[in-house]
């Protein structure tokens, strides 16, 4: 798939929601309106910090009917690859950034009888864009947000505009106190579950739902903050005739792009399959959600956006 021309966006305002959470609101830098964004969609920002170029994906929290602005919420992460640190400390209102057009990999199911949304921490972001869309559809839903105790009021404020009954709950008691199996067990037939948050939470929801007999097609998760780096390695790009060093906090895709090679990519989060690249030599540490177990075991392809070498060297047909 070809990438559409990126959007030029101006930072309209920045609101601190909590010590480590900021909401950034963007408007089109050259006037007009943004394209209608997909519910559950995300955008990729190109962040230029001196000579360093970072590309980070963030869920849009603004709904499809909002086209004057796109909003994201960014958590300042201690182990940041630099993107959230840059946004929190160096970006100011009026700055113009490059933003790839919104992409949807986490849509609401049209045929769901009910939507069950489960968020963990910053994983609330795509759920915030679902809420107005579900209201517009008149859809039945239930939302459970897990948070640390001190952030419970923050998330309650974010969810307040949509909380009209018992269908929205923020849980501050930790995951052990959250009766996931009970929640999943009492859902009516035809319910779809959506989860976004830390890997452990997403694994718990998908694993519990599967164990309770939920059909695979009714379980949806967004990949969020999965790529956490690893040991450095060397990638040999056989067709391009060059070698690149992949650093500890850098992805293979970022290293390839930094070397000036145009590599295919779309979601940059291990979900869409666009960046699948043939492997000639070397063992792959697969971290994506796209390849089948057989394809991963075969070791003949790698998704450069999230996966890495399991060893010092990877030779790619690129």
């Amino acid at each position: 798939m070809t990438a559409g021309a990126p959007l030029q966006v101006r930072v309209r305002d920045i609101v601190e929601l909590a010590p480590s959470l900021k909401r950034f609101s963007f408007e089109p830098a050259h006037g007009g309106l943004f394209p209608t964004p997909p519910a559950g969609g995300h955008v990729m920002l190109t962040l230029r910090d001196g000579a360093r170029v970072m590309k980070n994906a963030y869920s849009l929290v603004s709904p499809p009917m909002e086209r004057a602005r796109y909003d994201i919420i960014v958590r300042l992460v201690a182990q940041s690859r630099g993107g959230s640190d840059f946004l929190h400390r160096k970006v100011a209102p009026g700055d113009v950034l490059e933003m790839a057009r919104p992409v949807s990999l986490f849509p609401l199911a049209s045929s769901a009888k009910k939507h069950l949304l489960i968020g963990g921490g910053i994983g609330i972001t795509p759920l915030l864009s679902f809420l107005p869309e579900m209201k517009a559809r008149g859809a039945r839903f239930e939302l459970h947000q897990l948070a640390t105790g001190e952030e419970v009021p923050v998330f309650e404020r974010l969810l307040a505009p949509y909380a009209t009954g018992e269908e929205i709950r923020v849980h501050g008691g930790g995951r052990a106190a959250f009766d996931l199996a009970g929640l999943l067990s009492r859902q009516p037939l035809g319910t779809h579950v959506y989860v976004c948050g830390p890997h452990a939470l997403m694994d718990a929801v998908t694993g519990t739902a599967a164990a309770l007999g939920w059909p695979r097609g009714k379980i949806h998760k967004e990949s969020f903050g999965g790529a956490t780096g690893g040991l450095p390695f060397r990638a040999v790009l056989r067709r391009s005739g060059i070698e690149v060093e992949v650093g500890e906090t850098q992805t293979l895709l970022e290293a390839i792009e930094a070397a000036g090679v145009a590599a295919p990519c779309l979601c940059r989060g291990g979900a869409c399959g666009e960046c699948v690249t043939p492997v000639i030599e070397g063992e792959v540490d697969h971290r994506d959600d796209f390849l089948s177990a057989e394809e991963k075991a075969g070791g003949k392809v790698v998704m450069t956006c999230v996966s890495r070498a399991r060893g010092p060297r990877l030779v790619l047909d690129l």
């Binding site: 798939m1 070809t2 990438a3 559409g4 394209p35 209608t36 964004p37 997909p38 969609g41 057009r101 919104p102 992409v103 949807s104 779309l266 869409c272 399959g273 666009e274």
Partner: peptide, 11 residues
Amino acid sequence: LKYLLRLQCGQ
């Protein structure tokens, strides 16, 4: 089908 499943808004 694989291609169309990946079709994106605005493209």
